[in-house]
């Protein structure tokens, strides 16, 4: 980053006021350098795609779960809390409210692209580790009944442990 020099080229700028009084102003350059570096850092690490990740969900761990090679063409993220509530589109509702929401989503998907079919969409399921398996299966079944076929079960990546062969 280019250093901003003071008018007189010094690191400390001394301004002279009338009647011989003087004021020593600090050089702002290091502070601005540091601030820009901090901004650059935060801009790099920020990820707006994580906006649909509720902090209430404690994902199960898996050492084999890997990020998809390419992001799905059309993804719907359904989150299931340990209280068996579904979080979708910023709303929280019981599982019985899911079919209506999915139908709306399916309609939106079809209307936005005529070439896309329901089977092209991917349902990403972020279920809490303490959620009941039966509830997760219920969510999957509702999605299947709506016509969705592809599912991604999301897990938190964990460093590999030594496995017994």
């Amino acid at each position: 980053m280019a250093a901003i020099t003071t008018e007189r080229g010094g690191r400390l700028m001394r301004k002279r006021f009338g009647k011989g009084a003087s004021f020593a102003g600090g050089d702002m350059t290091p502070m601005i350098d540091m601030t820009f570096q901090l901004i650059a850092f935060f801009m790099v690490v920020i990820n707006f795609a994580e906006a649909d990740q509720s902090e209430r969900i404690r994902l199960p761990d898996s050492e084999l779960a890997k990020p998809p090679d390419s992001p799905p063409d059309f993804a719907i993220t359904l989150q299931l809390t340990r209280d068996n509530m579904v979080i979708f589109g910023g709303e929280e509702f019981p599982i019985r409210g899911l079919p209506r929401k999915l139908l709306v989503e399916k309609q939106v998907m079809i209307e936005t692209s005529k070439e896309r079919t329901v089977s092209d969409a991917t349902i990403i399921i972020r279920a809490d580790a303490d959620a009941q398996a039966g509830k997760v299966q219920e969510v999957i079944k509702i999605c299947q009944d709506t016509g969705f076929e592809k599912f991604h079960l999301r897990a938190k990546q964990k460093a590999a442990e030594k496995q017994k062969g």
Partner: peptide, 22 residues
């Protein structure tokens, strides 16, 4: 800077298991 600090969240890496169930 304040905006980025406030919105900063340490996210743990996540992965998927892909299953196809028509």
């Amino acid at each position: 800077l304040i905006f980025f600090i406030m919105t900063f969240k340490i996210a743990s890496p996540e992965g998927d298991f892909s299953i196809k169930m028509p």
